[in-house]
Design a protein around this nucleic acid. Sequence first.
DNA 1: ACCTGAACACCGTTCAAGT
DNA 2: ACCTGAACACCGTTCAAGT
Lengths: 236, 236
Amino acid sequence: MDGINILGDINVVNMSGRRKTSKRSAAERRDSYHHGDLKRALTDAALRLVAEKGPKGFTLTEAARRAGVSAAAPYRHFADKDQLLAAAAEQGFLQLHAALTKAADSACDPKRRLVALGRAYVRWAVTHPDHYQIMFGAQTVGSDHRGLVIAAAQAFNDLFEATTTYVTSETRRGRDPRRHAGAPWSLVHGIASLSIGGDLDHAGIHDDPPALAARAVAQHLEVSSTSAPESAPAPS
Amino acid sequence: MDGINILGDINVVNMSGRRKTSKRSAAERRDSYHHGDLKRALTDAALRLVAEKGPKGFTLTEAARRAGVSAAAPYRHFADKDQLLAAAAEQGFLQLHAALTKAADSACDPKRRLVALGRAYVRWAVTHPDHYQIMFGAQTVGSDHRGLVIAAAQAFNDLFEATTTYVTSETRRGRDPRRHAGAPWSLVHGIASLSIGGDLDHAGIHDDPPALAARAVAQHLEVSSTSAPESAPAPS
DNA sequence: ACCTGAACACCGTTCAAGT
DNA sequence: ACCTGAACACCGTTCAAGT
């Protein structure tokens, strides 16, 4: 096995020792009968298709074509089309979780942390619109994909934890702090969705979405606070 | 023409005078060669399909089948599948606009009005999840459907107007009040989306979504205000 | 003016057969 | 263990032909 997988790109894997260097298209990159990391190649293709043609532009056949395999090949790795999308969504939630964790570590103050999380959430969403659309297109809840549900819960839990910490530190009655997480979560998801959908732009709201999120979360936590609402906080 | 159209349901229209009362399925309701109001029957079928099987459960063929016509018949009324969805989305935005207008009239105080709008927005969304999913599934922005874009703008404008009125009445610096509409809009859209998607429920947030919206908007407008945040305002 | 029937390309999925 | 090729049902769309 002399093949080397390059994560995040189509793999040039070969069980045999042959080399073919004349062509570079996805279909030509495969030297042997076996692909090597078809699973990854397919989720990557799904992301690219969504980025190019929107959520409805993804088809299993086209993804297989781009990966250079037959239309039946994906079924060795995914039960069906939805399971492929679920796998892509899971990837997304894991990345989002990582981004949120990193943002949370950068702030000690409970309020600043929640603001940082809101900004990081929206920033990740708008820089990965293809992922984000798949994550909330394939309904996370109804999915029977175990990993997806867990990964999504982890990402959302980052917001919940920060909200809980803030609420219990600031408020006199700390009962049911989970209840207070609905608003900030909805706020950042709404900004992300409307921004990716182009609705904010179309309505004449051209603010930088992450900055808008930071401002809005800060304002929501306390009306008289933080930086002046006129000037958005500087991105980290 | 003795046929009478019943808005909001499959029509029992006939150009001829024949009657057929034995069956009641959609396919059997049509007595004559012509349907009568196929356009409406198709958008209704689309809504029902989305309600039953989710946004991906809608197919033009199945909608035609339920309306009792051939798969080719819809093309006399809509250019393609997306145009049918756009028409359904337009209906939705008109209804939402009406609901918001009604809610706005019920409150004079700028702040209470914005709160009422937020509650009405989410209430309409969660009581019409099929419509709402179509409205934000078929991306409103990129659509070449003139009526849809206008209807959507009207609905959003209800929120903008109320926000502008509030901001200029309350704030010292009233420049660019449109900018302040992004947060409340994102908030109510986020609550509506996450609620319809089942994510809020799944995360253990079982609040009544309209009440959550009212609370969150009120809190966003001013932290020390209105009714106690512990008890949700009573629905109108 | 509106609808049907047949046709075509394309997609999701299955399965026997290849490597 | 992984992939291909052929097959089938189904969907979107078109068009000539019916009422």
